[in-house]
Design a protein around this nucleic acid. Structure first.
Lengths: 225, 225
DNA sequence: GGCGGACCTAAGGGAACGCTGAGAGAACGT
DNA sequence: ACGTTCTCTCAGCGTTCCCTTAGGTCCGCC
C-alpha cells in the first residue's frame, strides 16, 4: 500500500513518513507542488496526503489538476488553520477529506484509514475476477471460499493486476506501482513475485489466471482463469 | 442533463423522479427491463439508474446488453439487499456503481453526481474488421469467438494494418512503424511476418483478410476477409 | 511461352525472455 | 537473542521469438 505525502515542512514530512512506514505503508515524499503532481501522475498511490500551502504549485491546484486528468485517487488535504483556503474549497475541487493543522497524528491515521477503506470513488470496494476476490480493506484474498494468505508484496502485485483485470500491465508499471518509484533498474523481482502468486493463487486450484504476455507484461484473466 | 430511471416499484420510481427533477435533472422513467433497454438505446442519457430486479428483463441483462452494443453510458445499479445478484456480479457485467436497497436518497444523489463527474469511461479502443477483433489493452486477437495467440511483432504488424483497415499500407511504413525506424535496408521481414499472420489469422478460418497489393504494400480487408 | 521482379515459404542460429531454485540479508515476532 | 518470515538477487535453464538466408512461386509484361 503506497502513499504519497506532499508537504514542504521538512520536519513534519519526515515525521509523517516515519509514522506511516511504521504502520506498514510505503511512503514517497514530495516537497513542493510540482514534484507532488509529477509523482502522483506517475505512481500508483493508494492515497495522497496533500498540504495546501506549497511552493511552486499549491495543493489546491495539484488536486484540481489530478481530477482534471481523471485521476480519482483518494486525497486527504492539510491546511493551516487560518489559511486562505477553507474546507469548502478543498472539497469543492475534489479532495475526499480535509484536516486542519495542527492535527494529532492519530487523527490523521484514522482519517487516512477511512479514506482507504472507502477506496477511490470510481473503484469497487472488492475486486473480483471469476471466483477470485480481493478485498483491499480487509487485506484478504479468496479463491471461491478458500482463503489465501499472501505477503504484503504479493498482495500489492495481485491488487494492481486485478485493478486492471483483462488488461496487460507492463512490468515497468508493476515496478513503479508496487515498489518505490525510484527503483534501481534491472531486476526480475516482478517475475519472481508473479511466480509466487501463481503458486498460491493458481496452481492449487488448477487455474491459470496470471497470464504472461511475452514482451508486454502480465494480465489477470478477466474471468479469474 | 437527462437521466433514465428503470425501476418497477412505482412509488420508489416516482419519488426518485421528483427528487432528481428537484435537483435539476430531466428524468425519464421505465418500469420494466424491455422498456428500459429500448429507451436507453434510443435516448442520449447522461446516466442510468437501473434496478436489478425487473419484470421481463433483469437489470443485469439490460446492462450486459447495452455494454455489448458498445454503449458505455454510466450505470448505477440498485439491488435488494438479499437479492440473488451481488455487487460483484453487477460490477462484473459493466455497471459503474452499485447501491444496495434500502439506501438513503442523499447517498444515491451523491453517487450519481460522482458518476456524472467522471463521465462516460472511454469506450475500450478495440479495433475490428468483420469478425476479427484486436484489443490493444488486453493484447488479444479474436476471430469470432476464437482467440488467436500472436507474438509481439505479429501483433504490432496486425495492429498497424487494422488501424488502416481498407487502406494500402506500404512496406516502408510497416518497417518504420513496427521496426526500428533506422532499419538496415534490404530485408524481407515484412513479407515473412505477413506470412506468419496469414497462417494464424486467415488460413485456419478460410479467410483472406491480409491482401497483397503488388508493388504497393498490404491491405487489411475492411470486412475482415 | 519466357523473362524479370516481386512475393512467399521453410529452416535454423542466435538472442531475448521468462521461470525457477538457492541463498543472503533485512524485518519481524516471540 | 533467536528463529521465522519476508524480500530481493543471482545464475542457470528451457522456451520462444526474431531475423536471415536460400531457394521456390506467382504475376505482369514482352
Amino acid at each position: 500500500m503506497k502513499l504519497l505525502v506532499v508537504e514542504d515542512e521538512v520536519r513534519l514530512a519526515q515525521a509523517l513518513r516515519r509514522g506511516l512506514q511504521a504502520e506498514g505503508f510505503t511512503v514517497d515524499l514530495a516537497h513542493d507542488g510540482e514534484d507532488g503532481l509529477h509523482l502522483a501522475r506517475e505512481g500508483e498511490y493508494a492515497a495522497i496526503v496533500l498540504d495546501v500551502m506549497l511552493p511552486h504549485l499549491s495543493g489546491y491546484r495539484v488536486c484540481q489538476q489530478l481530477r482534471k486528468d481523471g485521476n480519482w485517487v483518494p486525497i486527504l488535504m492539510l491546511s493551516a488553520k487560518d489559511g486562505e483556503y477553507d474546507e469548502a474549497d478543498g472539497l469543492d475541487i475534489g479532495a475526499d477529506d480535509y484536516l486542519t493543522k495542527p492535527f494529532s497524528y492519530v487523527v490523521l491515521v484514522a482519517h487516512l484509514r477511512a479514506l482507504l477503506r472507502r477506496g477511490a470513488p470510481d473503484r469497487p470496494a472488492v475486486l473480483t475476477a471469476g471466483d477470485l476476490t480481493l478485498d483491499p480493506a480487509s487485506h484478504t484474498v479468496q479463491r471461491g471460499d478458500q482463503e489465501i494468505s499472501l505477503t504484503r508484496r504479493e498482495f500489492a502485485v495481485l491488487e494492481l493486476l486485478m485493478r486492471h483485470r483483462g488488461e496487460v500491465v507492463p512490468k515497468s508499471q508493476l515496478l513503479t506501482g508496487v515498489w518505490d518509484s525510484n527503483y534501481s533498474g534491472a531486476s526480475n523481482v516482478v517475475e519472481v513475485y508473479v511466480g509466487y502468486l501463481r503458486r498460491k493463487v493458481d496452481e492449487p486450484f488448477g487455474k491459470n489466471s496470471l497470464q504472461t504476455v511475452r514482451g508486454a507484461g502480465y494480465r489477470m484473466a478477466a474471468d479469474g482463469g
